[in-house]
């Protein structure tokens, strides 16, 4: 059962703000999604190995060769704020 507390917790992990008024609505929707996914448990998968990737491809490597990085102009073109060659974000450390 998805409680309002669970919704709040998931929202905090995802850095989402959710109004208290919306908690029970989201809880209900999440509950429906989980029930839908739970239908899969009805299948007998005892002889199926766990899937770790949907493509049947393995061992895709790149060699240890240096490629060009972005220029400073490119690197900061999408930054909301920057300062002195750094991306600038709200204070997170003391």
């Amino acid at each position: 059962m998805i409680t309002n507390d669970t919704v709040k917790y998931i929202a905090s992990l995802s850095r989402l703000h959710i109004d208290d008024a919306d908690l029970s609505r989201f809880g209900g929707e999440l509950q429906n999604i989980l029930q839908y996914v739970d239908k899969l448990s009805e299948l007998d998968v005892s002889n199926v190995p766990p899937t770790s990737h949907v493509f049947r491809v393995e061992n895709v490597f790149r060699e240890d060769t240096i490629l060009p990085s972005l220029s400073p102009v490119e690197a900061f073109s999408f930054a909301i704020e920057s300062h002195d060659g750094h991306y600038k974000v709200p204070k997170v450390i003391e």
């Binding site: 240096i66 490629l67 990085s69 972005l70 690197a75 750094h86």
Partner: peptide
């Protein structure tokens, strides 16, 4: 290694900030 784990950016210490970044290691 010469490069990063998932992209071809230089794996070096002490370079000028944000000079070895690319769409992969910036998660674009």
């Amino acid at each position: 290694t010469a490069t990063k784990i998932f992209c071809g950016c230089r794996n070096d210490f002490g370079l000028e900030a944000n000079t070895c970044v690319c769409p992969v290691c910036l998660g674009l």
